Amino acid sequence: MQDTMTSAVTIERCSPRDPEATALITASHAFLLSKYPPEFSFALSIDDLCVPSIRFWTARIGGAARGCVALADKGDYGELKSMYVDPAARGAGIGALLVSTVIGAARDAGLPMLRLETGDDLYDAHRLYRRSGFVDCGPFGDYVEGPHSVFMERPV
């Protein structure tokens, strides 16, 4: 069944202000705030996602948005941000397709490295990122070591 669902997934560039994209981002923020104190949540707001240095995609099944991801161009590396898949659509390969989309976009942009920060107990996400070639690293950019963060990177 997963192969059938995966083949029905489409990935498209989208504005974070698209109502379905906004709903996914809002759900992601609520999920993160249910797990981590606000000072340890590094989710970008809708406005922060709508700047020229960030590209945003949604994953759709049957036309309905079921996942999202963003690529922030930091100049000498890219950062994978705002990765989220609707819990009802998990297991359909959406996460892998979104990560692959960001890797390809980073490659096309000439970014040599792709980095991310994720929650320390988001084990499914850790497995997905490791399957996609990410390895643990230390804090980067403006991040500092904290009790709830895992930092990862992979060459593009």
Score class of each variant (00 low, 15 high):
residue 17 R to S: 11
residue 17 R to M: 09
residue 30 A to F: 01
residue 79 E to L: 10
residue 103 I to N: 01
residue 141 G to C: 13
residue 17 R to T: 12
residue 10 T to H: 06
residue 118 T to E: 01
residue 18 D to A: 08
residue 33 L to H: 12
residue 156 V to R: 12
residue 141 G to E: 13
residue 106 A to P: 08
residue 139 P to S: 11
residue 73 D to G: 10
residue 74 K to C: 15
residue 136 D to V: 07
residue 129 Y to P: 01
residue 62 G to K: 08
residue 65 A to G: 11
residue 7 S to L: 11
residue 9 V to C: 12
residue 126 H to N: 12
residue 44 L to C: 07
residue 39 E to S: 10
residue 141 G to K: 12
residue 105 A to L: 07
residue 26 T to W: 00
residue 103 I to E: 08
residue 142 D to I: 06
residue 26 T to L: 05
residue 1 M to K: 10
residue 91 G to D: 01
residue 4 T to D: 13
residue 127 R to A: 15
residue 14 C to P: 00
residue 108 D to F: 02
residue 20 E to A: 07
residue 37 P to I: 08
residue 148 H to R: 14
residue 92 A to C: 14
residue 1 M to R: 05
residue 12 E to A: 15
residue 96 A to R: 14
residue 47 D to P: 12
residue 123 Y to G: 11
residue 28 S to M: 14
residue 140 F to C: 05
residue 52 P to C: 10
residue 130 R to D: 00
residue 126 H to L: 08
residue 117 E to W: 08
residue 65 A to T: 07
residue 15 S to A: 09
residue 82 S to Q: 14
residue 31 F to I: 00
residue 128 L to A: 08
residue 101 T to Y: 07
residue 19 P to H: 10
residue 102 V to R: 04
residue 150 V to R: 15
residue 97 L to V: 06
residue 11 I to D: 00
residue 66 R to M: 10
residue 15 S to R: 09
residue 24 L to Q: 02
residue 54 I to R: 15
residue 43 A to K: 11
residue 140 F to I: 04
residue 60 R to Q: 12
residue 56 F to E: 03
residue 71 L to H: 00
residue 122 L to T: 01
residue 47 D to F: 03
residue 154 R to V: 12
residue 104 G to S: 13
residue 16 P to S: 04
residue 141 G to S: 06
residue 33 L to A: 01
residue 111 L to S: 02
residue 49 L to M: 02
residue 49 L to E: 03
residue 141 G to Y: 11
residue 114 L to Q: 03
residue 69 V to T: 09
residue 145 E to I: 00
residue 59 A to F: 10
residue 106 A to H: 09
residue 151 F to Q: 06
residue 16 P to A: 03
residue 45 S to I: 08
residue 57 W to A: 01
residue 29 H to Q: 15
residue 111 L to E: 11
residue 109 A to L: 15
residue 69 V to W: 03
residue 83 M to A: 08
residue 52 P to L: 03
residue 64 A to P: 04
residue 121 D to F: 13
residue 90 R to V: 01
residue 15 S to F: 06
residue 118 T to L: 11
residue 98 L to F: 06
residue 142 D to Q: 06
residue 67 G to K: 03
residue 20 E to T: 06
residue 122 L to S: 00
residue 26 T to R: 10
residue 13 R to D: 03
residue 54 I to Q: 04
residue 104 G to N: 13
residue 53 S to N: 14
residue 123 Y to F: 13
residue 134 F to E: 02
residue 42 F to E: 03
residue 49 L to Q: 01
residue 83 M to F: 11
residue 42 F to T: 03
residue 86 D to H: 06
residue 54 I to V: 15
residue 121 D to I: 12
residue 124 D to E: 15
residue 96 A to H: 14
residue 66 R to L: 02
residue 105 A to K: 02
residue 38 P to G: 01
residue 130 R to S: 14
residue 125 A to W: 02
residue 99 V to I: 14
residue 76 D to H: 14
residue 146 G to V: 01
residue 45 S to E: 09
residue 125 A to Y: 05
residue 18 D to Q: 09
residue 25 I to A: 10
residue 131 R to A: 14
residue 98 L to S: 08
residue 61 I to P: 01
residue 120 D to H: 11
residue 115 R to H: 06
residue 58 T to M: 06
residue 141 G to V: 04
residue 80 L to T: 05
residue 60 R to H: 05
residue 21 A to G: 04
residue 108 D to M: 12
residue 64 A to L: 14
residue 125 A to M: 11
residue 150 V to G: 07
residue 27 A to K: 02
residue 79 E to K: 09
residue 104 G to M: 10
residue 116 L to K: 00
residue 89 A to E: 11
residue 31 F to Y: 15
residue 123 Y to M: 10
